[in-house]
Each structure stands twice: as C-alpha cells, then as structure tokens.
C-alpha cells in the first residue's frame, strides 16, 4: 500500500498568547510539536505498511523548520517525506492549504490512501481533510477509529458517530481522517532516529508544484482572519441572603422564574 500521511507542526502548548496589535500568535518561546492527531495518522499509516507492505510518505506544508518534524516522522516509520515550503504558501486558510497539499499529492505516483488527523489543535477546523478529498476527487471518511481490512482497491473501516460506530466500505484511493482511539503511537526507535538524522527532506516550492499563484497562500484563501480575541468572561453570580429557609424559598422562586423547575 502506498500511503500518504498529512502532518502539521503546531505550537506545543494550549496557553498560546496572541499579539493584540496583529491578532497573530506570539510564537517566541513556544516549542513546536507534531499536531497530536496527526501522530495517530502516521502510526496508522506505518501499521498498514507493516501489515500489507508498501511505503509511507509524510507530507507537510509549513515553514522551513517543519523539516525537524518530518525527521521525527522518519524516526517513527515514514519512508519518505515532502516539505511544501514557500513564502507564497504563507497565510493560507484551509481551502488554500487543501489545494496546495492536493497538488503535491497528485504528483505522488500510485497512492492508495491519504490519512489525516481529525483536526489540528491550533486551527481546530477539521476542514483540510474533507477539502483535500474534494480537491483530489476522492471519497472521504472522517473520524475513523479502526481499519478492519484492506483488499485491492477496497477498504473496510469503522468510524465513530455520535451514538456508536459505522462500518464503511470504500473504494481506494480515498482520504480518511482518524481519531485518537485508532491506535497508540509508538515511541521513536534509536535506529529510526539515526536513520532520520541522515535523511534528505525534499522541499517543494510553488514553482516545483506548478501551482496557480492565485490559488495558494493568502491570495488563494477564501477567508480572512479579522480578529482573534479571548471571549470576555462574565460571571453573573448572586449570593442568596437571609437564613436557610429564606435562601431555599428565594432559590425556588428564581428557578421557577427561569423555568428550570
């Protein structure tokens, strides 16, 4: 099986600060990590390779330092990597990101499956997976928690829905997004890390991809970030006065008024 796994480098903390002037993330002193959901995607890709043979290509769009993350992907079992990096790609929303990734994936010969994490922990949209499938003209299955069986050109998978599971058969190639229940990602191995250190990480630019410049980066984005802000926390607490009986009576009245009881 020829598997493509999409990875994104994200800030490794949930306490990200925002610059109030520019409305962008303050990235100083923040350690970047692989988007946690993507680690499950990579692990599943590597497990499928171990089960059925083939290779895993890890792909990411991001700044040059995302190279380090792709080395980690090699240490974790990826066979090759592609970094899509170009100033022209900067500022991309999910649409432009999906377009760019799709153009790159189209250049990978004979791929059977594209695996994404269910969403990133920075943007949190969960849109790139489905948009990518749309760009590639492939079926998309979200929230996959188990890959049951793969035969030539066909795959049986299980995905999580609100009140249970759905068993789905899909033709291949296809795009899927996975949830964390699907596996426990392995720890890196020493031999993997040693291999990763010497690996060559090819960088593809807009020129290499031959993309339409108006379709990538900020220019290719259908959305604009107008403002990022923390919602103001407003607490309407009220302390009930009087002795216990008064308090109970007043509480019941309030609950009745607000139609809770």
């Amino acid at each position: 099986m020829n598997i493509v796994v999409c990875l994104k480098q994200v800030p490794g903390t949930t306490q990200v600060k925002i610059n109030p002037q520019t409305n962008t993330l303050i990235r100083q002193d923040i350690k970047n990590i692989v988007n946690p959901f993507d680690t499950y995607a990579l692990e599943e890709g590597v497990r499928l390779k171990e089960r059925y043979g083939g290779k895993v290509t890890a792909i990411s769009m991001g700044p040059p330092q995302a190279e380090g993350m792709l080395r980690e992907a090699i240490a974790a079992g990826a066979d090759q990597t592609i970094l899509l990096s170009d100033r022209a790609f900067a500022g991309a929303d999910t649409l432009a990101t999906a377009y760019t990734l799709a153009q790159a994936i189209k250049k990978i010969e004979g791929y059977d499956l594209v695996i994404c994490g269910r969403q990133t922990i920075d943007g949190d949209t969960g849109q790139v997976g489905p948009e990518l499938a749309e760009e590639l003209g492939l079926p998309f299955i979200a929230y996959v928690n188990k890959i049951e069986e793969t035969t030539t050109g066909q795959m049986r998978i299980q995905r999580m829905i609100e009140e249970g599971h759905e068993l789905i058969e899909t033709p291949l190639p296809a795009v899927i997004s996975v949830v964390k229940e699907i596996n426990v990602p392995r720890l890196p191995s020493l031999r993997g890390i040693i291999k990763a250190k010497d690996a060559i990480i090819p960088v593809w630019t807009a020129h290499n991809l031959g993309v339409d410049p108006s379709m990538v980066g900020l220019d290719g984005s259908a959305t604009r970030v107008v403002k990022i802000f923390f919602p103001e926390r407003v607490r309407h607490g009220e302390k009930l006065q009087g002795d216990l009986e008064d308090q109970v009576a007043s509480l019941i009245e309030k609950l009745r008024k607000s139609r809770v009881i």
């Binding site: 392995r186 720890l187 890196p188 191995s189 020493l190 031999r191 993997g192």
Partner: peptide, 20 residues
C-alpha cells in the same frame, strides 16, 4: 516491549549481531 521497540536492548550488543 517499549524498550525493545525503541532499540534500547541493542545498545549493549555489538553491531555485527544487530546491536548498536
């Protein structure tokens, strides 16, 4: 098993015998 998967048992074995 984790230590094995991470190749840590290879550390004390010579390279000729699949160690590090």
């Amino acid at each position: 098993k984790d230590l094995a998967d991470s190749d840590l048992f290879r550390i004390f074995v010579p390279e000729e015998y699949e160690g590090l």
